[in-house]
C-alpha cells in the first residue's frame, strides 16, 4: 500500500509550523508519530499534499509539573509517558493507560498530541483527558487558545481543532495525593482498540467518596465523559447500590457501533463491566 504523493516539511519552531500551515492551505497536515495518519494515507483515506513533520520542534516535547499543574508537550511519545518519573508520582493513570495502547514499537513513535488530536473514538487518551478535565493548548494563525477536552470532540474525526492550528500541549491539575485511579480496557488482543474501556479517578476521605470522574473509550463516536456516573458515587461509601447506579448511568450514555468487536448489547454490557472493575480498583488504591 503506497500513500499518495506529498511534499515533506520539517520546521523547527511552532511559529514556523503555523506559518507553513497557513501558506500551504487546506491540503497540508501535521505529522506527529504517523501511527494513525500513515495507515490512513496508505488506504488513501487521507491524501494530504503537504506533510509538516513536528519531530524537530523542541518546544513541543517534555513533561513538567509546577505547583500541582502538569503540562505535557504534544510531541511527547507514549513510551516517554510510560517512563516518566513525574507522572509515576503525580498521575500514574497516564502511564497505566499508555501501556494499554498498542505495542512497544507503536508506543515508541505515537505521541500524546497525535492520540488526542486524531479524533478517532478508538484512541485511549481522549477519555482519560476528559476524566482529568485537561485543557488542550492550541496555536494558530490568530494566536493561542485553550479548549477543554470535555468540549473538544464533536464526532468521529471532527474536533474543535481548526485547519491551520497546531495542538502544542496538554495541561491539567494533578489529582490530589492519595487519589484512586484505574483505566480498564477490554480488547481482543494486544494492538487492538477497545471493545470498551473506562477511566476512573476518585478521592476518598474517611471511607466516603469525595469526588469521582469517569469517562469512556470507543463506545460512541466520541469519547464520553460520564458525568452522571461520577455523581452517583460522590458522597457515598461506594456501597453496592452506588456502584450499580454509576454503572447504569455510564451504560445509559453509550452509543457503540456493532462491528468485529461485538454487537451493541455486548459492548454496552462490557462498558458496565469495565466501569465496575475500574471503580473497584480505583477504590482499592485510594488512600
Amino acid at each position: 500500500m503506497i500513500p499518495g504523493a506529498f511534499d515533506y516539511h520539517r520546521p523547527s519552531s511552532i511559529d514556523e509550523a503555523v506559518k507553513l500551515l497557513a501558506d500551504l492551505g487546506d491540503e497540508a497536515r501535521v505529522l506527529a508519530g504517523g501511527h494513525s495518519l500513515i495507515p490512513m494515507m496508505k488506504l488513501r483515506m487521507a491524501l494530504p499534499e503537504n506533510l509538516i513533520d513536528l519531530q524537530d520542534i523542541a518546544e513541543l516535547k517534555g513533561i513538567s509539573e509546577d505547583g500541582g499543574t502538569i503540562t505535557i508537550g504534544a510531541m511527547t511519545r507514549q513510551a516517554e509517558i510510560i517512563a516518566s518519573a513525574v507522572l509515576a508520582e503525580h498521575c500514574p493513570i497516564l502511564p497505566e493507560t499508555a501501556l494499554q495502547i498498542a505495542d512497544p514499537q507503536v508506543r515508541n513513535l505515537g505521541t500524546i498530541g497525535g492520540n488526542v488530536a486524531n479524533g478517532d473514538p478508538g484512541n485511549d487518551m481522549p477519555a482519560l483527558m476528559q476524566a482529568l478535565d485537561a485543557a488542550y493548548l492550541i496555536a494558530g494563525p490568530g494566536g493561542n487558545r485553550e479548549v477543554a477536552a470535555r468540549g473538544f470532540y464533536d464526532a468521529a474525526f471532527f474536533t474543535a481543532l481548526a485547519d491551520g492550528e497546531v495542538l502544542t500541549a496538554i495541561r491539567f491539575a494533578a489529582p490530589p495525593a492519595g487519589h484512586g485511579y484505574a483505566y480498564e480496557k477490554q480488547k481482543r488482543k494486544i494492538g487492538d482498540y477497545a471493545t470498551a474501556a473506562a477511566a476512573v479517578i476518585l478521592t476518598m476521605s474517611g471511607g466516603r467518596c469525595e469526588s469521582a470522574e469517569i469517562a469512556l473509550t470507543n463506545v460512541g463516536d466520541t469519547p464520553l465523559y460520564a458525568e452522571e456516573a461520577g455523581k452517583a458515587l460522590a458522597g457515598t461509601d461506594l456501597n453496592a447500590d452506588a456502584v450499580k447506579a454509576a454503572v447504569e448511568a455510564a451504560k445509559a450514555i453509550t452509543r457503540p457501533a456493532a462491528d468485529g468487536r461485538g454487537p451493541v448489547d455486548f459492548r454496552t454490557s462490557v462498558t458496565g463491566v469495565m466501569v465496575r472493575n475500574a471503580i473497584e480498583r480505583a477504590a482499592a488504591r485510594a488512600a
Binding site: 515533506y8 505529522l31 500513515i38 495507515p39 513533520d53 505495542d103 507503536v106 515508541n108 513513535l109
Partner: peptide
C-alpha cells in the same frame, strides 16, 4: 503492511520501530 505484525521492525535512534509505518523522510 499495517503496523501490526512487526516483521519490518528495525532500530531507529535507539528504539524499535515498525518501518512499514515510518516515512524514510522521517
Amino acid at each position: 503492511d499495517t503496523g501490526h505484525c512487526g516483521a519490518c521492525t528495525v532500530d531507529m535512534d535507539g528504539m524499535s520501530v515498525k518501518s512499514c509505518t515510518v516515512f524514510a523522510a522521517q
